[in-house]
């Protein structure tokens, strides 16, 4: 009898202990990874999407609605990346803590300087984002900046663990800074290299590594290329001294592979976010693997 009581007590403790963890709803894997780096055991992180999924086109799945209801903090990219599904979750999730404008609603894009802000807004230009290119996670400097802001936000919502968040964020930032110094050296051979991209999702990566985006396989952002359009691209690539064709793990590699087969320029799959490849297990490994894959194909010529 006593054993049962002790067990029940332990269970209760475990249950209440668990209830104390900050429930984080991360829209994309990179923010889940960042929240875990900062929160450690103090947070319980749910990731709405995987690295194999196009974050523009997520279904407002029932499980996402119920997970949003339980969240203390929503961490998304913002810049309209989730505009096709988050509004439904926020409306149906019946959670006042995480409504836009509340401390429980965090958009990483607000902590960084967005690139490719369109000068004209017209859907004839494809799936343009008014705020700028939302694929900010491909530059570690953006993760660094978002991490500082996120730790502050987490401390605001959960003051009891403020010191934990501050310390863990600082420890992560120290590791990231060391890694960034290392990446700078490692990625030096990539500087000035021209690449083709399948979708315009790499501007932050290219900007960071000093590479240039010479060609886009999509005629307009979000519009799949036709065979005719790709034929024009194939003619164009050698003239522009393009060294590789980049596509994200979630993308259908067919357009990149088609162009690669016709031109002999390698198509390179990059993880795009944490979990995009087997090697990209955490944020540091994500950039490690990205640079490794770029270097592996840069040597080809």
């Amino acid at each position: 009898m006593r054993n049962i009581l002790v067990a029940a007590g332990l269970l209760l403790l475990a249950a209440t202990g668990r209830a104390h963890a900050l429930d984080v709803f991360a829209c994309e894997p990179e923010w889940a990874a960042l929240a875990s780096e900062i929160g450690g055991d103090a947070v319980d992180v749910f990731t709405a999407t995987t690295a194999r999924q196009d974050p523009h086109q997520i279904q407002a799945r029932p499980a996402l609605i119920s997970r949003l209801r339980a969240a203390d903090l929503v961490v998304c990219t913002g810049a309209e990346l989730e505009v096709g599904w988050m509004p439904v979750l926020l409306r149906q999730g019946a959670n006042s803590k995480v409504q836009p404008g509340s401390p429980g609603y965090f958009e990483a894009a607000h902590s960084v300087h967005l690139l490719e802000v369109p000068t004209r807004l017209d859907r004839a230009d494809g799936d343009v984002h008014a705020a700028g290119n939302p694929h900010i996670q491909t530059d570690p400097a953006n993760i660094r900046a978002a991490g500082i802001a996120l730790a502050q936000r987490m401390a605001e919502i959960d003051p009891g663990h403020a010191a934990t968040y501050r310390d863990r964020e600082l420890a992560f930032r120290t590791r990231l800074d060391a890694a960034m110094a290392r990446w700078k050296t490692e990625a030096a051979p990539l500087k000035g290299m021209a690449v083709a991209v399948q979708h315009r999702s790499w501007i932050y990566l290219l900007n960071w590594l000093g590479m240039t985006e010479a060609v886009t396989l999509e005629p307009k952002p979000g519009v799949p290329p036709s065979a005719g359009y790709l034929a024009g691209v194939i003619d164009d690539l050698p003239k522009k001294n393009v060294r590789m064709i980049l596509y994200a793990a979630y993308q259908d590699p067919k357009p990149s592979e088609f162009v690669a087969a016709k031109t002999g320029i390698p198509a390179v799959e990059l993880p795009f976010t944490v979990g995009g490849t087997d090697q990209a297990a955490d944020l540091i490994a994500f950039y490690d693997d990205t640079i490794k894959r770029l270097l592996a194909h840069a040597d080809h010529h």
Binding site: T47, T50, Q53, Q59, P62, A63, S66
Partner: peptide
């Protein structure tokens, strides 16, 4: 009354309602 869920992480095995 409605109920639903994911099958697998991130709905990789589908989702239902």
């Amino acid at each position: 009354a409605h109920m639903g869920d994911d099958i697998g992480k991130g709905g990789e095995g589908g989702s239902w309602r």
